[in-house]
Design a protein around this nucleic acid. Structure first.
Lengths: 341, 341
DNA sequence: TTGAAAGCGCTAACAG
DNA sequence: CTGTTAGCGCTTTCAA
């Protein structure tokens, strides 16, 4: 089923059908009608790949995501898809399970599809990845770095949509200090490639040091994150029994620690303040509610889609969008506080 | 950067380069080396779309998912991606937010890419969707229905990977009855298009009726599912105060209900047994642990990928894979029971 | 307003 | 083992 079949049935040539599909106003009304009838009758679906090959224009956007199973990224993807809906662009998703080697491979594979834009997560990649991205940019393909936003500003062609994770780490320390705490600690992710978690950790420790405090930094175990949070709290209480306020690289760790603390009879937040990151759904349901920083999960996807459309359709767009995290104070850091959302 | 450039640099013609890429053993070792050098030097990436157009073979798999944001589907996608990794096939993902109208549109859009296989969620679609899928099958494109498995068996070309949701509903009723309960109820999803939840509800009510019981059936509100679970329990206690065991369409509802029950001083499972579906991570962490049915989230993705590879590479494959749910008994239905996983 | 010719980058089939 | 010819389904440019 090709243009040819439609053309034959409508009594025109292929080019007229093609033109009707792309610029219907340039075809006589009466011809248009016959063509449309033929299309409907035969259930014609244009071959996108042939069209792209001939025109040199791609309608494909490729996104490289560390782990789609993580709900935090799943919502961003959902936002991306919704934002792209109706634009004519399709999304090709690659998930590399936090393996940077696989990221390069996936990038290589996807480049063969000649995507109109590339979306990558964060700023940290293997040199080979950077090299390929540079080439793509040089070739006119915009590259979006999402879930991150940091100075120094990247060169032209690159777009950042996200927030500064060091700054978020600092926000976390400042909130705990504002609650009156001086004995702080941070539990970082044990996944080496979770660079953004490490930046939050650094931001936290740095802010504490600025305030004259020394905040110990632990690494959570791999495996089930809630279990890891439990274990981390256990370890922390052995090694640093004086600590009264702990921030975690994510809410799952924090939740595990909260449950662990309670099961040992500690009162939260009186004996121990607990602060998470991510605003996962359950933090609002448990008692006490989990204080946390809420990243703009869906907004990152939607904004990226929006900038993408501007860029691809009109050639111009912002190169930069800072979407800050919101501090959500619940009971785990501030006694007698209503959920402030 | 095309085959031509590589060929020129290696002192051969395009076809030799093309052949080297696809059947390296059919090229002289010495030639192969020169070609490879040229490829490396110029950083050549073959144009997938041109190749597919010329060969008529597609290396694209399209998947239609109700909602990627739902972690339950996110893990299936992760499984799919992992299972497809290294096969040379790429995944194109479409999420239609449980809108069947959008599902048809997305299907239409993706058909233009001439995918090698289609993956759809469940068996229930608009007639237009069914029609298009039929056409695809008639054309030799296999269609996978995932997250569902039911008789009567579909015609050739279709593959089911999942489980029978009515059966799961029955399993839920049977577990509660085995715990000694006679006053049962089911809280179904309020999303009209969540057909699989409705099937679980029907299976539940049917199994209860077989046992001579009348189990009331409520619909949860839309919006935040944990809140909806809370509200549903409230409503249930007003309308059917005698009920002592409730099953829910998913764990989030169940969790909300569990928390609601506890906040009203009800003892779980003594005063009220609570059973969920999905085995979301938190059910194991809270006290009492949430009893639930665990669907093979990741396995559905992996198995689908496996069957897909068999089908696309060797032409033959099972047409059917039943992956049952596991009953996970924790404290919310059985007092003094260890988590049995 | 419509059509003819040429070609996008690659591969199939056959020939050498 | 390598090359030639033809063409995948569509779009571009130009001419009618």
């Amino acid at each position: 089923m090709t243009l040819h079949d439609i053309a034959a049935r409508a009594g025109v040539t292929r080019i007229t059908v093609s033109r009707y599909l792309r610029e219907p106003e340039r075809v006589a009304a009466e011809t248009a009608q016959r063509v449309q009838q033929a299309i409907d009758a035969l259930g014609y679906v244009p071959n996108v790949q042939a069209g792209q090959l001939a025109s040199g224009h791609s309608r494909l956007v490729a996104a490289l995501i560390p782990n789609i199973g993580h709900s935090i990224f799943a919502e961003t993807i959902q936002g991306l898809i919704e934002g792209l809906d109706g634009s004519g662009y399709e999304l090709m998703l690659m998930s590399y399970a936090y393996s940077l080697e696989r990221e390069v491979e996936q990038l290589r594979a996807v480049l063969g599809w000649h995507p109109a834009a590339l979306i990558v997560t964060g700023r940290q990649h293997l040199p080979a990845t950077h090299h390929l991205l540079q080439q793509a940019v040089a070739h006119g393909t915009p590259v979006f770095q999402i879930w991150d936003h940091a100075r120094p500003k990247h060169p032209a062609g690159w777009v950042q949509v996200g927030f500064d994770h060091r700054e978020v780490g600092a926000q976390m320390a400042e909130h705990l200090m504002a609650c009156g705490h001086r004995a702080l600690a941070f539990v970082d992710s044990g996944v080496v490639e979770d660079f953004r978690a490490h930046e939050r950790a650094q931001g936290f420790v740095h802010a504490a040091r600025q305030a004259g405090l020394v905040a110990p930094l632990l690494n959570a175990n791999l495996g089930d994150p809630t279990e890891a949070g439990r274990a981390a709290l256990h370890e922390l209480r052995q090694a640093h029994p004086h600590v009264r306020a702990v921030a975690f690289a994510n809410d799952q760790f924090a939740l595990g620690a909260l449950l662990e603390a309670q099961s040992h009879g500690l009162e939260v937040p009186k004996d121990l303040a607990v602060l998470g990151f991510g605003d996962f759904p359950l933090g609002a349901q448990i008692a006490p509610g989990l204080s946390t920083l809420r990243p703009p999960r869906v907004e990152i996807g939607r904004t990226t889609a929006e900038i993408l459309r501007q860029r691809l359709l009109h050639g111009q767009s912002p190169t930069d969008c800072h979407l800050p995290c919101a501090l959500v104070v619940r009971g785990s850091t501030a006694a007698n506080t209503q959920a402030k959302v």
